[in-house]
Design a protein around this nucleic acid. Structure first.
Length: 892
DNA sequence: CTAGGGTTAG
């Protein structure tokens, strides 16, 4: 009896020693190999089926990321396993991301009539959350309630988290509110739920409630609330959280520091972000990714790629690193680096990530390698909407619209289209100015339910405006529930481009009352309006704003300012803006060349054109239009023809109809009418109304009636919708005295529903704009103006002036014709200006149509008799009259 | 039981 007891005690003592040393060894095993050794030992000792060791082995293998071994241990015991072993295997699977297997074992356990306990549910809820298995999740919740475990803290926390991951924040809140006991994890789960689903305001609100409830935030709390501060751009709140982090010593937590880093990048606070990164004691790959991605977001792409190279020294980049840096490659157009990263990706076995492949498509397209884009797209096994959109976008960028439309049709069949697809497709119809195509897309947008999307609506408003359907554009605008800055910019530009400046101004005011700040695009939208009104003062005010907002180094802004000042009659300011620009693109040079052209400074235009080429800027189609136009307005026939030649020979540019029109203009303005006509017949393109129109205007000035009649017939054949050409033709018939024809044309203009713009001129005196129409009698000082014009015409007659009655386009008596000429709006404006300014002050007159020949002559006389410099801007160009001559040298 | 970093468009 004694010995047995002794023996049993000894046996137990031995066993206890084995147990404790094995248990110690198990806990300290740091890799799978060590663990396998201990495992063999346990098997040798015949202990592998003990509840304690089997459970320990399952968890330990799981901890060392070897769930297969966990499973094999479990299978050894499975017929007899109890809830402890089941929980171990479910936990092993859950912690290794094998969620569906975890759920499978959960149902198997129930089939074996083993009841789950309070440790099972959090694990199962976790798996449901990860798999987004909503049905199963609800069943689990139900089971919890049935088993009376509804008040368990851990289970409650798991359920809050599960519903939050489903995006069911209302359910999550309901569980949270129903909990009898809450800890920091409960609050964290709710905060992160709101934060991860983009409900940033709610996340912050719950965070503040937690603080008021006396909860001390931990690293989880902070890293859930930081993205909310960043997303809302709540700099103050973010800084308060940052202070708290320092105070309670959470900054040594790498996740918290990464959160701060990301937040400061969102605030565009590069210096703070960099300091956080530099002062981090421990960095992980997320820190590097946040840095690389942050630089990318701030468009510091070079820094982004440099950080990637630095990161290679200490970390293996993952897919997120690669996608961030590929984005930078695209923006840098650095094909070589892009290929380097792509190779790295292949070597590291990262080929099958949809997001990474999508960025590759975009990167190759941006770097100019469309074929490589296609290869990536073609090879992808699963393509998502972004893949298709990116590929379509490639084709659009390369102008291959047919291929883009073809792909979108396949997408439509597969129901893969999204709002972004339509934003891109709408941009195609906008670029083609194809309103029928645009309408088709509009129908699709309604059909697929994208018509409440802000960006889609902005695109549609822009599309209709650029297709000339301003009313449809406004209709879209009126139906929109929210407007952002782009909406306003689109609609303001639409108003300005359709010529409705009054509405444009109203929109700007409305934009400001809604508290939307203007940006570069807003300014670009309204500058043409200043040009039209020649509102130098308003233009200068806007120029001031540009400085205040810091837009002055923006190239498109500089370009628009050059154009604005030149159209406002201030060539000097144009040149000053041009001179101050540090970087000039082809548009900058073209704007300056056009400006010179409008003022008849042909020689300077040619000089600028040469300078442009010398600085390495390659002229495009538009630049050639500008230079030939400039030559034509200064009578530089040789130079103009040389340019036309050059564009084909040296620059391989196919001349377009507008280039031919410029050459016709060039020849005919210089009186080479037969040469011009010959040129028209030799062109490979079908001449349009503008080509014949140029020749016809020249015929009128030089009085070549024979050619004029022939050309008039050609123009009428074309049945153009532009009233200008009918007016021109009718003027020719008026000069010829063919009044029947004149009446016929006027009737046909009316019959076709066209309207002739009534002529008007305007002048700004002391910050007020005075507008005059033809034959106006009802303005202040009409009597004085009329008297002054009478005196002037007496003085002119002494100098040898004879009225050019051909400029009167009505069938009336000669005396009456003389009176009609005196009523031309520009003369009224000039006389009004002479009366209301001090002697010697230069005058500036604007006219919406072209100046007639007689007025041109009269203005020359006035500039001499009254000793005034008079600047007249007509629909086409500027005339500077001084001492009896005009800057245009009569080339107009 | 709870946390951080990635793609296409106007």
């Amino acid at each position: 009896m004694k010995t047995t007891t002794k023996f049993s005690t000894l046996h137990e003592a031995k066993n206890q020693l084995v147990y404790s040393s094995l248990s110690k060894a198990l806990s300290s095993a740091s890799n799978s190999k060590q663990l396998h050794k201990i495992h063999s030992l346990i098997i040798t000792l015949g202990l592998e089926k003990s509840i304690f060791f089997s459970g320990k082995l399952i968890s330990k293998y799981a901890q060392l990321k070897d769930p297969t071994s966990s499973l094999s241990v479990f299978h050894q015991v499975s017929p007899t396993s109890n809830v402890f072993q089941w929980n171990s295997i479910i936990r092993a699977l859950t912690h290794n991301g094998l969620f569906s297997k975890a759920l499978f074992f959960n149902s198997k356990m129930q089939k074996m009539d083993v009841l789950p306990d309070k440790y099972t549910f959090p694990l199962v809820a976790n798996s449901c959350a990860a798999l987004l298995d909503i049905e199963m999740g609800k069943v689990v919740h139900q089971n919890v309630l049935e088993m009376g475990l509804g008040s368990d803290l851990y289970i409650g926390n798991a359920l809050v988290d599960m519903y939050a991951r489903f995006g069911f924040l209302a359910e999550a809140l309901k569980v949270f509110d129903g909990m009898s006991e809450r800890d920091v994890v409960s609050w964290n789960s709710l905060i992160s739920g709101y934060s991860a689903n983009g409900y940033w305001e709610e996340a912050l609100e719950v965070y503040n409630m937690a603080r008021m409830a006396g909860i001390m935030p931990d690293s989880f709390t902070v890293s859930s609330v930081l993205p909310a501060c960043g997303g809302l751009m709540h700099v103050k709140e973010g800084e308060i959280v940052h202070c708290l982090v320092e105070k309670i010593g959470l900054h040594s937590d790498v996740v918290v520091s990464n959160g701060l880093l990301s937040m400061y990048f969102k605030f565009n606070r590069l210096v703070d972000a960099r300091r956080i990164f530099d002062e981090m004691m421990v960095r992980d790959s997320v820190s590097w990714n946040t840095l690389i991605c942050g630089y990318s977001q701030m468009e510091l792409f070079k820094e982004s790629t440099e950080c990637f190279m630095l990161m290679l020294n200490s970390f293996k980049p993952d897919l997120l690193t690669i996608t961030s840096v590929l984005r930078a490659c695209g923006h840098l157009r650095d094909l070589e680096f892009g290929k380097f990263v792509h190779d790295y990706m292949k070597k590291s076995g990262y080929q099958c990530d949809v997001t990474a492949d999508n960025i590759l498509i975009d990167m190759y397209a941006k770097c100019g390698d469309l074929l490589a884009s296609w290869e990536v797209f073609d090879r992808m096994i699963c393509k998502d909407s972004v893949s298709w959109n990116s590929m379509i976008n490639c084709y659009i960028q390369y102008g291959n619209y047919d291929e883009a439309l073809k792909l979108s049709k396949i997408m439509k069949v597969d129901l893969k289209v999204d709002s972004i697809t339509y934003v891109m497709l709408l941009s195609v119809s906008t670029q083609l100015a194809d309103k029928e195509l645009g309408k088709e897309f509009h129908c699709d947008v309604i059909k697929f339910g994208f018509d409440s999307d802000l960006i889609v609506n902005n695109s549609m408003a822009d599309m209709y405006a650029k297709c000339g359907q301003i009313n449809d554009s406004l209709k879209i605008f009126e139906n929109m529930k929210t407007h952002d800055r782009v909406t306003w910019n689109t609609i303001i530009t639409a108003c300005v481009q359709s010529g409705d400046f009054t509405l444009g101004l109203r929109m700007i005011n409305q934009m400001r009352t809604e508290g939307v700040m203007p940006d570069v695009a807003t300014v670009l939208g309204i500058l043409p309006m200043c040009s039209f009104f020649a509102a130098k003062r308003q233009g200068k005010e806007i120029h001031g704003c540009i400085f205040r907002f810091g837009f002055e180094s923006d190239i498109p802004i500089g370009n628009a300012l050059i154009e604005m000042y030149s159209k406002c009659g201030n060539l000097k300011n144009s040149w000053q803006v041009f001179d101050r620009m540090k970087v000039r693109d082809v548009v900058t040079w073209t704007a300056m060349i056009s400006a010179y052209g409008m003022y008849g400074e042909g020689k300077k235009a040619v000089g600028a054109f040469e300078d442009m080429k010398a600085t390495g800027v390659i002229p495009d189609h538009v630049a050639f239009v500008a230079i030939i136009y400039a030559c034509s307005h200064s009578g530089l026939v040789e130079e103009g023809l040389a340019c036309f030649d050059q564009m084909q020979k040296d620059y391989n540019l196919e001349p377009r109809i507008e280039h031919y029109a410029c050459v016709v203009d060039l020849l005919s303005r210089s009186g080479l009418l037969s040469k011009a006509e010959e040129f028209i017949y030799s062109m490979p393109l079908k001449p349009n109304a503008s080509i014949w129109g140029s020749l016809l205007s020249a015929c009128r000035s030089s009085g070549n009636i024979e050619v004029a009649e022939r050309v008039s017939e050609r123009i009428l054949e074309l049945k153009s919708n532009d009233t200008g050409y009918y007016v021109l033709v009718s003027n020719v018939y008026a000069i010829l005295g063919k009044w029947d024809q004149v009446r016929m044309i006027r009737k046909s203009i009316k019959a076709r529903g066209l309207k002739k713009d009534p002529a008007c001129s305007w002048i700004e005196i002391k910050r007020r704009l005075y507008v005059f129409g033809t034959g106006d009698k009802f303005f202040e000082q009409f009597e004085e103006v009329n008297k002054l014009l009478g005196i002037i015409s007496g003085l002119m007659a002494k100098e040898g002036y004879v009225a050019d009655l051909r400029c009167v386009l009505h069938d009336v008596e000669e005396d009456e014709k003389r009176d009609l000429l005196c009523g031309h709006s520009e003369r009224l404006a000039i006389a009004f200006g002479l009366l209301n300014t001090k002697p010697g002050t230069p005058l500036q007159i604007m006219k919406n149509l072209r100046v007639c020949g007689d007025c041109h002559t009269v203005t020359k006389y006035i500039s001499m008799i009254m000793q005034r410099e008079i600047l007249v801007r007509d629909a086409n160009r500027f005339h500077v009259f001084k001492d009896g001559t005009c800057s245009c040298g009569d080339h107009w």
